[in-house]
Amino acid sequence: MNGLTGEFARGVVRENPLLRLMIGLCSALAVSVKLESSLFMSLAVIFVLTMSNIVISALRRVTPENIRIPIFIVVVSSFTTIVDLVLRAYFPAIYSRLGVWIPLIVVNCIILGRAEAYAYKNNIIRSAMDGLGMGLGYTLVLLIMGFVRELIGTGAITLLGATLIHMGSRFEAPILAISFPGAFLAFGLLMGLLNKLEQRQRRAK
């Protein structure tokens, strides 16, 4: 794989930020309690990640090496503030659910990590693709986790007030799935499952 699709796909699978690079975990565990919050958090992260990658890449030739980190932070925190204010204004319910995690995007390791490791060294289009790919990798895991945890833990999936799936009244949802320990547990099991699949694939080759 090479070229732009390569940049894009890399973040989704091979260097998935959550499952492979082990960064950006905090928010992923916290917001994956519901599909809805996973979705909005992912959108916020994709936006901030892509935009800051673009801006940092664009400024990379004029950014002095020794103060690059503060500059990255200023860029990232500007976009984070935008998301913060937009969500607060238009989706107050979701904002209050996501709470601390929106402002904490600014220290989300994915974003600063990509800025430092990629955007600062590559051109704008590549950086944008990298941001999108990484964001999508994050989104993918978040959606799976959000879906599974919400479905098992509450017995139903609701999105923007509409109930999409309902397991029926005889299903007694284990609250464990949406609890704090459940987040770690689900994530650990998901990683184990992927490892298992990968091992099987490797053996098949």
Partner: peptide
Amino acid sequence: AALLISWP
């Protein structure tokens, strides 16, 4: 403990 959280 897990059961207690799951089905209090």
